[in-house]
């Protein structure tokens, strides 16, 4: 089993065998987690630091749990971006972390490329837990694992990613991962929320939700990143829900056995109807969270294999 890099900064650039290996390993951790067993010797003596420059409950907790299940010492550091002066602390933080002999560093930052910058300055293996509007690699892995468990494969599936594509790192990582693994990826949203030249990333662009969902195996909804939107890219939440929110009527255009996903946290009634979000057979949103822990265990496991044995 191979992984070609020291860090996990992006999905872009990883090849099908690397992704397949990570997903297979994550699958085995999913089974282990369900069995109630742990593997606390794997990262024993290793230090994992969750460095979050942006608020997050779900991703941070997921990494924390993943680290603890593998026996690492886990420390959470939250750096409020409002109290410190922008990125200046980023490199100061790097030297602090080096002094702490951190082995695995999980970073979330509001700026695209911040984990990459940090990775050039720290000794630890860096895992990107979401940077600006760039990538969120572990989210794409957990989404792919969830899809694979339900559909048995990724190749040839029609996956519709819907909503605020422009401000979504989740969308970018998923576009890279799923196209690399042979899925047919569509992005669906109003033109103001579709990034420039999206088609060059190997996806099909739709502005009509029903057309975009037609025949889809997977419907992936995104959070409408209202807090990131500078200057009304959509006029109102009610208009957005009417044309791009997922409800039963729009979902009827997808395949009858299609699954519905959402990376959370959801804006119910903005991008997704509650009845769909809580649908017992179609919604796999709960399972995504479960697979998140398994995927992060796989990533920590894989990266730790390349760490020096002793400090």
């Amino acid at each position: 089993m191979t992984y070609p890099r020291k860090h996990l900064l992006a999905i872009e650039g990883l090849e099908p065998p690397h992704l397949a290996d990570l997903l297979d390993l994550a699958e085995s951790y999913a089974l282990l987690n369900r069995s109630g067993k742990t593997q606390r010797d794997l990262l024993k003596g290793r230090t994992l630091i969750n460095l979050f420059f942006e608020d997050s409950t779900r991703t941070r907790t997921s990494f924390e749990l993943a680290g603890k299940r593998l026996g690492a010492d886990v420390i959470n550091m939250s750096v409020s971006t409002s109290s410190v002066n922008k990125g200046e602390t980023l490199l100061d933080t790097a030297s602090t972390l080096n002094a702490m002999h951190c082995d695995l560093l999980v970073v979330r930052h509001g700026q695209s490329g911040a984990p990459s910058l940090l990775s050039q300055k720290v000794d630890a293996a860096v895992i990107n837990a979401g940077d600006g509007t760039h990538e969120h690699p572990t989210q794409a892995l957990l989404d792919a694992l969830t899809i694979r468990r339900h559909k048995g494969r990724l190749e040839g599936l029609v996956v519709a990613i819907c909503g605020d594509i422009a401000h979504s790192r989740v969308a970018r990582s998923n576009m890279h991962l799923l196209t690399t693994m042979g899925s047919r990826v569509r992005v669906v949203g109003p033109p103001t929320l579709i990034p420039a030249e999206s088609a060059r990333l190997g996806v099909e662009v739709f502005h009509d939700m029903k057309a975009g969902l037609a025949g889809a195996d997977v419907v992936m909804m995104l959070r409408l990143q209202r807090e990131r939107m500078s200057g009304g890219m959509v006029p109102s939440a009610r208009e957005f829900f009417r044309f791009y929110g997922l409800d039963a009527e729009k979902l009827a255009h997808a395949k009858p056995d299609s699954i519905v996903m959402h990376p959370g946290p959801m804006n119910r009634g903005v991008e997704i109807d509650s009845a769909i979000a809580d649908h017992l057979t179609r919604s796999v949103i709960g399972e995504q969270v479960e697979m998140g822990v398994a995927c992060r265990m796989a990533v920590l496991d894989m990266l730790s294999r390349q760490l020096p044995r002793n400090r």
């Binding site: 872009e12 695209s112 509007t133 990538e135 790192r169 970018r172 030249e197 060059r200 990333l201």
Partner: peptide, 20 residues
């Protein structure tokens, strides 16, 4: 305003705000 790179495929891949 707010742009950091030329709008296009590369800026989209890097997740950077583009300037047309």
């Amino acid at each position: 305003a707010g742009g950091a790179a030329t709008e296009g495929e590369l800026a989209t891949r890097l997740g950077l705000p583009g300037i047309t």
